[in-house]
């Protein structure tokens, strides 16, 4: 699904340049649930941003579902993001003046799906995350866990090939974190490919594979036995 070869990325900081990713080789198969771990500054978020086409790579190659991602203009990148990728952010990034259902329907709007179908799909995905009765509420009326579940529903609504989550539990308490992880595991069980950036070991253990990043290179890449989040959720 994802194929990365010899990826380099550096940021210019005035006259200096900060070499963040120093040759990443990495691939993800269909249906995997991967945790990318590392301390702060290890380059894990940068990697995720490049994977998500939110940022550009300097060197190397990136192939997503057989499509080489390079030299993309903004319009093309936007179309690919819309078609291939779903995002879940640490700070939820819901649009605050839109209701839960409208937020979920937004990626479908950019896919030019009809209004009626958008609403139906939005409700269907809200149902999946258990928030159907909250469809008409604004984000400000939802708890953190609920917001993140709306964000997950939004990411899923576009039916992406890969779901990218950047510290999805970073702003949540552990109980809510486990609920969100339970949801993510269920989505993965349904066959979706998911990448999670996290620095919390217990969250990482709930994935099927952990990639450790340090100083811009992968130091460890192991398949693990998944811990089910459901056991922590009453």
């Amino acid at each position: 699904m994802i194929e990365i070869k010899d990826l380099h990325k550096s940021y210019k900081m005035g006259s200096n340049s900060l070499h963040v990713l120093k040759g990443i080789n990495f691939s993800v198969e269909d249906g995997e649930l991967v945790a990318i771990m590392g301390s702060s500054g290890s380059g894990k978020s940068t990697l995720l941003n490049i994977l998500g086409m939110l940022d550009e790579l300097d060197e190397g190659s990136y192939t997503l579902d057989g499509v080489p991602i390079k030299n993309m203009n903004e319009t093309k990148a936007a179309q690919y993001r819309n078609k291939f990728l779903g995002f879940v952010f640490q700070s939820f990034n819901l649009i605050n003046y839109k209701t839960a259902a409208e937020n979920v329907a937004l990626p479908l709007y950019y896919q030019k799906v009809g209004r009626k179908e958008r609403q139906e799909k939005a409700l269907k995905y809200l149902e999946q995350v258990g928030l159907r009765e909250w469809a008409g509420h604004l984000p400000s009326e939802l708890s953190g866990g609920q917001k993140q579940r709306v964000a997950i529903a939004r990411a899923m609504a576009a039916e992406p090939k890969v779901l990218l989550a950047d510290e999805p539990t970073g702003a949540l308490d552990s109980k809510t974190s486990y609920e969100v992880m339970d949801l993510i595991q269920k989505i993965n069980d349904a066959g979706n490919t998911i990448l999670i950036v996290t620095h919390e070991p217990d969250i990482a253990k709930m994935c099927k594979r952990i990639v450790h990043l340090k100083d811009g290179i992968i130091i460890e890449d192991e398949k693990i036995t998944q811990v089910r989040a459901a056991q922590y959720v009453q």
């Binding site: 998500g52 939110l54 903004e74 319009t75 936007a78 179309q79 993001r81 819309n82 078609k83 995002f87 990034n93 819901l94 649009i95 937004l106 990626p107 950019y110 896919q111 939004r154 576009a158």
Partner: peptide, 16 residues
């Protein structure tokens, strides 16, 4: 700005 960033992440083209 932030809202536009969210929209772009969700697939809004610069044109839209």
């Amino acid at each position: 700005t932030k809202e536009l960033g969210i929209r772009k992440a969700l697939g809004a083209t610069p044109r839209s």
